[in-house]
């Protein structure tokens, strides 16, 4: 029977020792999730802005679909992507299955609806006078959009933090389309699942500590951003 305290101490020691295998796994997680977030960010913000400010046929249907996608399990995203990318699938020729780009695509699919939904509510909550004030002071449509982004920056940062938290902690899609290959596609969550299955808890706990620390940092940042997020209305 393992001793919880001994395992925890050994995990801390492994983290502290700078174990290249362990930190390599952490690096895979961060690089994949950061890439997915960076790629998804601008299209998601633009989509959120368009849904908030433009009226077009199918707008409500698009919002409903996006909101529904928020609740899609990560394994379902992994399954669909696996079917698309497997050799027999329509995108099989791209040879992306079990690669980091495949993991990035999976995480883009997971964070895009979240970023759109949160940016949409940020833009909807923003004061309608922001764009008019920017325009009347000579801003072009693009400059007015950038001004609006600045005005709702804390709410958008909260969206980014939440999306990052969701994708770095997901295991379903990463496991199915990444394949959990050491030094290539093994990330924190897939490594924890693997090590736990083998009964090797030390590395799993060490990686769990990294994830929990990250969750704590993200939550503190989110709380700070939400306390700074305000929309200026009528002299507030």
């Amino acid at each position: 029977m393992y001793n919880l305290w001994t395992t925890f101490s050994a995990a801390l020691a492994q983290l502290w020792s700078g174990d290249p295998l362990l930190w390599g796994i952490v690096a895979v997680s961060f690089s994949v999730s950061a890439s997915a977030l960076l790629i998804a960010l601008l299209p998601a913000l633009t989509t959120g802005f368009m849904l908030a400010y433009f009226r077009f046929p199918g707008r409500w249907a698009a919002i409903s679909v996006l909101n529904s996608l928020l609740a899609v399990p990560t394994v379902v995203v992994g399954l669909v992507l696996y079917m698309l990318l497997s050799r027999a699938g329509p995108l099989g020729d791209l040879n992306l299955l079990f690669t980091r780009p495949a993991m990035i695509i999976g995480q883009i699919l997971l964070c895009f609806p979240l970023l759109v939904a949160m940016s949409l509510s940020a833009f909807q909550a923003a004061d309608h006078r922001v764009l008019e004030t920017a325009k009347t002071l000579g801003a072009s449509p693009w400059q007015a959009f950038v001004t609006l982004l600045f005005e709702v920056r804390f709410a958008l940062l909260a969206a980014v933090v939440t999306a990052f938290g969701r994708i770095i902690a997901e295991v379903g899609s990463a496991m199915m389309v990444g394949g959990n290959i050491l030094h290539h596609t093994r990330n924190i969550t897939t490594a924890i699942a693997l090590e736990t299955g083998k009964g090797e808890f030390v590395q799993g706990v060490a990686l769990g500590i990294v994830l929990l620390t990250l969750a704590l940092v993200l939550n503190i940042s989110l709380g700070w951003m939400q306390s700074h997020s305000r929309v200026l209305r009528h002299g507030d």
């Binding site: 922001v130 008019e132 200026l232 002299g235």
Partner: peptide, 12 residues
């Protein structure tokens, strides 16, 4: 031509 709203919007 600059328009000033009834309740002025000031940037953050």
């Amino acid at each position: 031509v600059i328009y000033l709203h009834q309740h002025t919007y000031l940037f953050d």
